[in-house]
Design a protein around this nucleic acid. Structure first.
Lengths: 242, 242
DNA sequence: TTTTCTATGTCCTGCACCGGACAGACAGCG
DNA sequence: CGCTGTCTGTCCGGTGCAGGACATAGAAAA
């Protein structure tokens, strides 16, 4: 569907052995990820796997009353449609685009076939699934114990990692939904971070001005998840353990 | 290691085709799960998979400062050592026995071999992994939004499911650690549930007296997780989707 | 320019829960 | 029997955040 020489910008695909990637390529179609698009709804069918090349997708649990809580984030380092990796075609959570971008899409049937063909793909995606589990685990602990300001810092770091730019679009209103707190709560926390010189923002534009300071202001959950990512999917992780 | 005719009381093993189970049996050893035993530590190696036949095991994330937050629970319906299912031998979370019981244990190497041999085992355990993910997801949302009383009710229901008895050992102190709240907070919530006639307790003995009422008092998270379990692992779930 | 919309800052009240402390109650043990 | 340890109920002050409201300030539209 696109030239064999086009470099892939999704880390998972990039980590595949060239032959495995080559076999996968004909099934991969580039697609846009427009802001606010729902890739699949909560408690509904999953018809494709997306490998983002840019942008950011949130996974949101929906509670009765309709309120949503973010439990995971996917960018160019991962994939959406995780249930398909497990051989299921149904998702408990909604996948929604939070920063526009592009992705490579593969339909459920083709994906299933590819998984059966390629042991490298299976191993890699299972490691990603384990990382994602770690992310959700840290979110559960974080939601239970950490104050807004630390969670905000964590979220901004994750967004910064995916944005590919120090500046990106982001309102307090939006952040409040992601963190599951009130909007003024975000304003106060963001103000504190801004006064500390870690970020700058005006009307929906957010900029990270002191990355290291922001890391120090966040809870450990960010680092724990990143360390887990590196262990499972970082350089040198493909010669495998168990 | 034990007679081929001994019925297995672990739901996952019981759901295996007889031939697959028979092949697995020689590697399975019955072990005790004494109260408070750590099966594997946080951020440490996982050397075996355990299929509990009774009792209950908590998975606990540890935050800096040493405080622990429960993110998942395993009983006779599941297994511990989930990273081994993903081809990894390391766990971010601690697995600790919270209600004594027994389990069937299989070492990491034998488990790995069994996974390679049996497609049924792989499929089944991947579905369990997906259910477990749902459990952690709901916990993340629940920790973010639900008050102590509802979370307590949810936890008691989960414990009740595993206990195999309407009465079981359970102190407020212990519950407070599991829920990540103060002990008096549990006392107040438990008192409310008791006054409503849903539970009874004295000095470390807890009894569920109105199961349906307790379900009504809990948040939806309990039902959501149970529905997901039924869908993935309940009767008739083995002829597979994707 | 003025109008309108959206994003942000700020204030209020109220509640859930924290951290800490303490007293009563029950159980096991000498 | 009393002693001791553990479990539970309750109260304190304090805080973080909810729910709600309102003012202000950029930005976009007219």
């Amino acid at each position: 569907m696109f030239s064999e020489n086009t470099p892939v910008r999704n880390s998972l695909l990039a980590a595949l052995p060239p032959e495995d990637l080559a076999r996968l390529r004909p099934s991969l179609r580039p697609v846009e990820l427009p802001f606010d698009q729902t890739l699949y709804p909560a408690d509904g069918p999953v018809d494709a796997v997306m490998f983002p090349e840019s942008g950011m997708v949130s996974l949101l649990a929906t509670l009765e009353g309709g309120e949503q809580v973010e439990v995971g984030i996917v960018g160019h380092e991962g994939l959406t449609g995780l249930p398909l990796v497990f051989g299921d075609d149904h998702s408990l959570v909604e996948a929604r685009v939070q920063m526009e971008g592009t992705a490579l899409r593969i339909g459920a049937a083709a994906f299933r076939a590819a998984m059966e063909e390629s042991a490298a793909l299976r191993g890699l995606l299972l490691r990603y699934a384990l990382f994602f589990q770690a992310q959700v685990t840290m979110t559960a602990a974080c939601n239970a114990r950490h104050p807004i300001e630390q969670r905000l810092a964590r979220w901004l770091l994750i967004a910064h990692d995916r944005a590919g730019d120090d500046e990106f679009a982001m309102t307090h209103e939006f952040l409040s939904m992601m963190l599951g707190v009130r909007r003024p709560g975000v304003s106060v926390a963001a103000n504190t971070l801004q006064k500390a010189g870690l970020i700058r923002y005006v009307r929906g534009r957010m900029a990270v001005t002191d990355r290291l300071g922001l890391e120090a202001a966040s809870c450990e959950c960010y680092h724990t998840a990143r360390r887990e990512f590196t262990r499972l999917l970082g350089p040198g992780s493909s010669r495998q353990r168990g």
